[in-house]
């Protein structure tokens, strides 16, 4: 294909690119410029580099997001496998169950978790009734609560991204492997897993990036003790009106995201994985 032909092929992207340019790139760019211009910017970056709080918060945010991504992978992969291999009459309703949480607002879901996990909440009542614990167990207003909330919100993304790729796996390949003498486990390990990796990679990257920006869930379920970068940015924009620092923090988060993703892209050959041909 000629170069102009390839460019013409990109034309359908134009509407989205325009929308992004006007509604995302321009305002975010302006915030960064207005935040960082005029001397305040350099000072903000220096503060970011020297005050240990910001490094700690950034590291905690990355750790939180990584843990959630891993947990979602462990929980979501088997679900996606079940959905992709189940007969249609069973797979379709199961898929609906996965999607239903998307219909409920994030805030409502976070508050629901507060009610379920609090000291005299349903979970603690169950634990005590089952004799597993005498005292109420602290399930929320700590890091555990944040994990529960974030996993609940992010899990469907992982399931759907794995499911999409798994649906495309040709079942005859598995039969061929069996014909050649592979056990079920071997066929799963040597054929299914490698073919499903694009979904795993896409889901993991998506979850990791989404997790880095989480704000409401850590603020509510963490009981004010789980400060993430997004919480700091919000406080600096809205309360301290310290936009240079907020802009510097955003840049720091962006840099951390890129740094974390760059090796992933190289390692996983992301471009090929997403479009395997």
């Amino acid at each position: 294909m000629s170069r102009t032909g390839a460019l013409r092929g990109l034309l359908p992207l134009l509407p989205l690119l325009l929308v992004l340019l006007v509604l995302l790139v321009y305002p975010v760019g302006r915030l960064l410029v207005s935040g960082l211009a005029g001397g305040g910017g350099l000072a903000a970056f220096r503060e970011l580099a020297t005050v240990p709080l910001y490094r700690d918060v950034l590291l905690r945010t990355v750790r939180l997001s990584l843990t959630v991504t891993l947990a979602c992978l462990l929980l979501g992969y088997p679900v996606a496998y079940t959905l992709a291999t189940a007969p249609r009459w069973l797979g379709a309703p199961l898929l609906v169950l996965v999607v239903v949480p998307f219909w409920i607002s994030l805030l409502a879901r976070s508050f629901t978790w507060l009610v379920l996990l609090q000291r005299n909440g349903v979970m603690n009542q169950l634990l005590q009734a089952a004799g597993l614990s005498k005292e109420p167990v602290p399930l929320v207003y700590n890091e555990l609560g944040v994990y529960v909330g974030m996993i609940h919100i992010l899990l469907p993304y992982m399931i759907l991204s794995c499911y999409g790729v798994m649906r495309g796996i040709d079942p005859t390949l598995l039969r061929a492997a069996a014909n050649l003498g592979a056990s079920d486990w071997q066929a799963f390990r040597c054929v299914w897993i490698p073919l499903s990796l694009p979904g795993v990679a896409a889901g993991s990257v998506l979850l990791f990036v989404l997790g880095l920006g989480f704000f409401i869930t850590p603020a509510l379920l963490g009981g004010g003790k789980v400060t993430t970068v997004a919480v700091l940015i919000e406080a600096n924009v809205r309360e301290a009106l310290n936009w240079p620092l907020a802009a510097a923090l955003s840049c720091g988060l962006l840099a951390a995201t890129v740094l974390a993703l760059a090796p992933a892209f190289r390692l996983l050959r992301f471009d090929r994985l997403v479009a395997p041909r």
Binding site: V51, L53, D56, V57, G224, K225, T227, L232, A235, N236, E239, A240, L241, N242
Partner: peptide, 14 residues
Amino acid sequence: NVEEITKRWLAFVG
């Protein structure tokens, strides 16, 4: 004083 204090407060809770 709020800007200065917010900074300290964030360090305190963070």
